[in-house]
Design a protein around this nucleic acid. Structure first.
Length: 596
DNA sequence: GCCGTTTTCGGCCCGACTGTTTTCAGTCG
């Protein structure tokens, strides 16, 4: 019996392999493409497919229809799909390992694995390396001098990095390159494309658009950037390079006349573009990165994206929403919402202070003055400290009470001191706490001490692997406390490190909406939690959010932008976000006590 | 195998780049 738990990446891989088999064996190109489309959709999905299956929502995945739903059902129920396994047996197993090599697709992988009898996926790559070394690829039809070399260099480059990077990492790499490009005379403007422009939580490759009237010179300059370690490919208008750090960067040149189409095309997502082209097709038009061809084959170019979308009868779709879900249908009906903006954020309620005490988790590192200064820089109207609750072990109730009293005094005294010194535009101070939700749903602090706070953020910091029902009850139980108004980093995920807890989010969102509980969008780039797909779902339940930095250092307060981007990707409007509201409004919500 | 505001049948995104050819196939985004 196979295992019964599958990640999205594992499922995407299975579908990709099926597509490869169909492409080389069954001579069914469109069936192959259907599997490829589903594979891409699943690889980009932030919700676990297995959870969607549990909730009977498999058909909500674009590209997954009746048949694939049945196959996935079989996969989750029995640990395997008989149909898939039958198809896989039609090709040498080594073919699937070769597919991982950049530059080798289904046709080449099949050809090589048949020719050299690469029947074992575990040894196929090793054997291929040996064959290249012994120059045995030369005689094969379609293989000249360069292809073996290309495969060899792909294999050498491959080992470096496989995981997608955090958006914060990608942004800092891109920003350096962009400022280099933007300082070149021949370059009018350079800006990010792809998932970085769509503000995805993780980024694969860094894509850059370059606007120029002199493409030859611009390409020359771009390729001379000192961080470039290797040029993978380069033509007149596009190039792919590898930085010395191992990161792959792709850049694309265009004239000002075609700039709108270029931005649109390479911002993607791929799914979004496929849907756009299907729409264009139904209108007798044809899309490319150069423009739109009408029925009579006449081309129209676009200087900006707005006119491009308008030509297709669509209102402008912000990059954050271009994920190939329902954004095109919304744009057709002129129903794209006005998304929340960074400038609308009026405060941050999840900051950790440097007050020293035996805390259950890590303390903040910056002085309060540094934090107040930063808050003024960000034009905040209010500011809330939510240090972790004092330890349970080794402290008595009296001990905890005394700690929290001293903490309040420290915060208030420092604040008054700062007010005296600075006088103007000093944000209002709120004193909260981030309290652990214990495995049984209790809060890790006595009621009386909780009630003395302005507010409490309640968060899970332990026992992440409880089952779905237990976790759901645990969270709801914690939120029943009148002071527990904010659910901190709800899923507990750490991107690339720890997966989300399993819970019935629909039930939690409904509860929050009904009882004025606020869901945090934690802006720490390694969390981005609540993730955008769940934000989108929660908005449908009328739940409200607060975007917090969770800063343990004043320099992290500016991370709030990552939270805003995540909220945007979840289709949030400013009225969905509590900390776009005035202090009076905020306090009103923090003090509302009704729990049914 | 998926999908639907001309369709539940009959279509299925488009172009750049590379390497091998000499007009095209494969791969990628």
């Amino acid at each position: 019996m196979g295992k019964k738990s599958f990640t999205n990446q594992e499922i995407a891989k299975l579908l990709k392999q099926m597509a490869a088999v169909f492409e080389v064996k069954n001579n069914n190109f469109f069936r192959a493409r259907a599997y490829t489309n589903a594979s891409i959709a699943i690889a980009n999905l932030t919700t676990s497919v297995q959870i969607l299956w549990q909730e009977g929502k498999l058909n909500e995945i674009p590209g997954v229809g009746k048949n694939l739903s049945q196959h996935l059902n079989e996969l989750f129920s029995t640990g395997k799909v008989k149909h898939f396994n039958r198809e896989f047996k039609k090709v040498p197993q080594g073919m699937f390992s070769l597919l991982k090599i950049r530059g080798i697709g289904p046709k080449t992988a099949y050809k090589l694995s048949v020719k050299f009898k690469l029947n074992d996926s575990a040894t196929a790559i090793k054997k291929l390396k040996k064959l290249i070394k012994e120059k045995k690829l030369k005689g094969i039809k379609g293989f000249g001098e360069k292809l073996p070399e290309k495969i060899k260099s792909s294999l050498n480059l491959q080992a470096v990095s496989s995981k997608r990077m955090l958006i914060s990492t990608a942004l800092s790499i891109a920003d350096d390159f962009l400022s280099y490009l933007n300082s070149q005379k021949s370059i009018l403007k350079a800006e990010p494309l792809g998932s970085l422009r769509r503000h995805s939580s993780t980024i694969g490759d860094i894509d850059i658009a370059i606007r120029t009237k002199n493409p030859k010179e611009a390409m020359n300059k771009a390729l001379k950037y000192e961080e470039i370690g290797k040029v993978i490919s380069s033509g007149e208008s596009v190039a792919r390079v590898k930085f010395k750090t191992g990161h792959e960067v792709y850049f694309k040149l265009s004239s000002p006349q075609e700039w709108g189409s270029l931005l649109q095309h390479y911002t993607g997502s791929k799914q979004h573009n496929i849907l756009l082209r299907t729409l264009a097709q139904s209108k007798g038009m044809s899309l490319s990165e150069h423009g739109i061809k009408n029925k009579r084959g006449k081309s129209k170019k676009f200087k900006n994206e707005k006119s491009f979308y308008a030509y297709l009868g669509l209102s402008f779709i912000p990059p954050e929403l271009r994920e190939g879900e329902d954004e095109i249908k919304s744009a057709q009906k002129n129903k794209i919402p006005k998304l929340v903006k960074l400038e609308e954020i009026k405060g941050d309620l999840h900051l950790h202070s440097d007050f020293k005490f035996p805390s259950s988790h890590d303390l903040g590192a910056s002085s309060l003055f540094e934090i107040f200064n930063k808050a003024r820089e960000l034009n905040y109207e209010y500011l809330g400290f939510a240090d972790h609750n004092p330890k349970q072990a080794g402290l008595t109730y009296k001990g905890r009470e005394s700690i929290l009293k001293r903490r309040r005094k420290y915060l208030v005294t420092q604040y008054q001191e700062y007010e005296k010194r600075v006088k103007t535009r000093v944000p209002k101070l709120l004193i909260g706490l981030e309290i652990d939700i214990r495995p049984n749903g209790d809060l890790a602090l006595e009621d009386k001490l909780i009630n003395a706070l302005d507010y409490a953020i309640v968060s899970i910091h332990s026992s992440f692997n409880q089952d779905r029902n237990k976790t759901t009850k645990r969270i709801l139980s914690a939120l029943k406390h009148p002071k527990a108004v904010i659910l901190g980093h709800p899923t507990g995920r750490m991107i690339n490190k720890r997966s989300s807890i399993q819970a019935n989010w629909g039930e939690i969102f409904t509860f929050c909406a009904k009882n004025n509980k606020i869901i945090e969008v934690n802006a720490d780039p390694s969390r981005l939690d609540l993730p955008s797909d769940l934000i989108k779902q929660a908005i449908k339940s009328n739940a409200k959010f607060i975007i917090n930095s969770d800063g343990h250092h004043s320099s992290q307060m500016k991370n709030i932008k990552f939270g805003v981007w995540t909220a945007k990707k979840g289709w949030s409007k400013s009225k969905d976000i509590l900390n776009t509201q005035s202090l009076a409004e905020l306090i009103n919500v923090l003090n509302s006590k009704a729990v049914n």
